[in-house]
């Protein structure tokens, strides 16, 4: 039970990171982007490429940092991958979503995002192969935190949780302390008023994609560190991430953070009563529960 709870918190840390970008994009661009989880794949795979590259160029970077399976090479790769993924998100928006929006309406964007998800996922499969990859081939040993009840935690998981919380705190500071953050929130609330006060809408939309892509990349890499990297990871993560945004209330960054942890914990606790095969259904059950009890989520506001 305790083990499930702890595992759930760890899963929650990367679900939250993924959900933040999704909820921001949904709020500002007003469409449900079903290709958002593919940004996690792009992030995970580009980090894999950089990681291998640095390890072969500078073997010293292949040294592990402390008890982690993380290396210096991977640490640098995370930063580069955030940039690459953010840039990909901006380009996908510029060349696909914006053009579809001009031709049709919100619904067309949702369809287009499904199409993009299908393309990205399968192109990754074609380039990197369908089998799973790992950042490190070594087996990471879990630390025994407690024997009764038995509680095992891997050092990597602790790192993932702390790093995720640090990133979320930085985002919180940006949103609550900087005029850039105020501009983002202003655009989300009232785009034309924000423009009238000198906010450049295009630049803010690009910023949303960069933030969403950057955090998504970290989420994907952390998922890869915790499990493995596969071309279909986006397909498996898209529903839990959407569930996190709905639980938190679409448009709320803080809701997405909380929603991510709630979905992560619930999906793991559900394993106590449900056979493990059913875990992919848990996010859907959570969506149903939220829609029944509190349709606008924990922090969402009614908007049609």
């Amino acid at each position: 039970m305790i083990q499930h709870l702890v595992d759930g918190i760890l899963v929650g840390s990367f679900l939250s990171l993924g959900a933040i970008g999704l909820t921001m994009a949904m709020h500002i661009l007003r469409f449900a982007n079903f290709s958002h989880a593919e940004l996690l794949s792009i992030g995970a795979y580009s980090a894999l490429v950089f990681d291998k590259l640095f390890e072969s160029l500078l073997p010293i970077l292949a040294e592990k940092i402390g008890p982690l399976s993380m290396t210096g090479a991977l640490a640098i790769s995370i930063v580069l991958s955030m940039a690459i993924t953010g840039l990909s998100a901006v380009l996908i928006d510029r060349f696909i979503f914006q053009r579809v929006r001009q031709k049709g309406e919100e619904l067309s964007m949702v369809f287009a995002s499904f199409g993009m998800a299908l393309i990205i996922r399968n192109v990754i499969g074609l380039v990197f192969g369908l089998s799973a990859e790992l950042y490190s081939q070594d087996i990471a040993f879990a630390m025994v935190v407690s024997r009764d009840p038995l509680l095992l935690v891997k050092p990597d998981q602790v790192f993932v949780l702390i790093a995720a919380l640090v990133l979320m705190f930085i985002l919180h500071l940006v949103l609550s302390r900087t005029t850039f953050g105020f501009s983002l929130r202003a655009v989300a609330e009232n785009p034309s008023l924000a423009q009238v006060h000198g906010v450049n809408l295009k630049r803010m939309i690009a910023a949303v994609w960069i933030i969403g892509g950057g955090l998504g990349a970290v989420a994907g890499i952390f998922y890869g560190l915790s499990y493995q990297i596969t071309p279909v990871m986006g397909r498996d993560l898209v529903l839990p991430i959407f569930a996190a945004t709905i639980v938190g209330g679409i448009g709320s960054v803080y809701g997405a953070v909380l929603g991510g942890f709630i979905v992560g914990i619930a999906a793991n606790l559900a394993l106590v009563i449900l056979p493990s095969g059913y875990s992919p259904s848990v996010p859907f059950l959570m969506i149903l529960a939220v829609l029944l009890l509190r349709p606008h989520g924990l922090f969402g506001e009614a908007r049609t």
């Binding site: 949904m26 469409f31 449900a32 079903f34 919100e106 619904l107 949702v110 898209v238 529903l239 959407f242 569930a243 709905i246 679409i250 992919p280 259904s281 996010p283 859907f284 969506i287 149903l288 829609l291 349709p295 606008h296 908007r303 049609t304």
Partner: peptide, 15 residues
């Protein structure tokens, strides 16, 4: 609710 919810819920029901 706004149309996103239908999109997400129908996708979820399929999964």
């Amino acid at each position: 609710l706004r149309h996103d919810y239908l999109a997400i819920a129908t996708f979820g029901v399929a999964v």
